[in-house]
Amino acid sequence: MSDLRKQIPNVLDISPENLKWLTEVWSAYTRVNMSKKNVLDMLKMAEMLCGAKQVNVSEQLHFLHDLPEEPILQQFWNIVEKHWVDLNHKKNDYELAINLNQFMNFCEKNGYTGFDRMTLIKWLPYSQQYQFMERNKAVRSCHDSRAVKCYIFKKLQ
């Protein structure tokens, strides 16, 4: 740990190489493996450790867009896109309202396995395919006009 602290740069240059170093620091402090979800938390921790202020973080993190979606989210979106009409409670094509209870039941009935509800809840806000907007929002379902609590996403262009 102390060896890692000795290597702390005065200025953070966010590159794939430095992100690898931040990953080691992050893992040492938190015992959590890095994912895209953790990148900004790692940057905040690095800033706290060395006092370096990161300017234009979003510009310097452009390479994150090339990283693949988390596997559970890839599987989730594949199912949602395949069964859009059955799972989406919104009428329009640019918004998506998914009720997680219905999604989990649908998966169970149709033989889609490998979903842990809590893991899915953890990762949904970090989706790259669809922008997460809100959780547990009451939506009038286009299927039967009743109010359903849904995760809301916006389709990205």
Rank of each mutant, 00 (worst) to 15 (best):
R5D: 08
R5K: 14
R5N: 11
R5I: 15
K6F: 00
K6W: 02
K6N: 07
K6I: 04
K6C: 11
Q7R: 05
Q7P: 09
Q7L: 04
Q7Y: 09
I8A: 02
I8N: 07
I8Q: 01
I8G: 07
I8F: 09
I8M: 05
P9Q: 10
P9N: 10
N10W: 10
N10H: 13
N10Y: 11
N10M: 11
V11G: 07
V11P: 05
V11W: 12
V11I: 09
L12S: 01
L12F: 06
L12I: 09
D13M: 07
D13R: 13
D13T: 02
I14K: 03
I14C: 08
I14N: 02
I14M: 11
I14P: 04
I14Y: 09
I14S: 01
S15W: 07
S15H: 07
S15K: 05
S15D: 07
P16Q: 06
P16G: 00
P16V: 01
E17D: 07
E17Y: 03
E17A: 06
E17Q: 15
N18H: 14
N18L: 08
N18A: 13
N18Y: 07
L19Y: 04
L19I: 01
L19A: 09
L19S: 02
L19D: 14
L19E: 09
K20M: 04
K20V: 08
K20G: 10
W21L: 14
W21Y: 15
L22V: 02
L22G: 14
L22F: 07
L22N: 02
L22P: 00
L22E: 12
L22H: 02
T23D: 09
T23S: 14
E24K: 01
E24T: 01
E24N: 05
V25C: 01
V25D: 08
V25M: 14
V25I: 15
V25N: 04
W26K: 00
W26Y: 12
W26P: 00
W26S: 05
W26H: 01
S27P: 04
S27E: 13
S27Y: 15
A28F: 08
A28R: 04
Y29L: 14
Y29K: 08
Y29V: 10
Y29S: 13
Y29D: 10
Y29R: 12
T30W: 08
T30G: 00
T30M: 10
T30S: 03
T30D: 06
R31G: 07
R31W: 10
R31H: 15
V32R: 14
V32M: 13
V32W: 09
V32H: 10
V32E: 14
N33H: 15
M34I: 03
M34W: 03
M34S: 00
M34L: 15
M34D: 08
S35F: 04
S35K: 00
S35Y: 05
S35E: 13
S35D: 13
S35M: 08
S35T: 15
S35V: 00
K36D: 15
K36E: 09
K36Y: 04
K36Q: 14
K37G: 02
K37D: 03
K37V: 06
N38W: 03
N38C: 11
N38F: 13
N38L: 11
V39R: 00
V39S: 00
V39D: 03
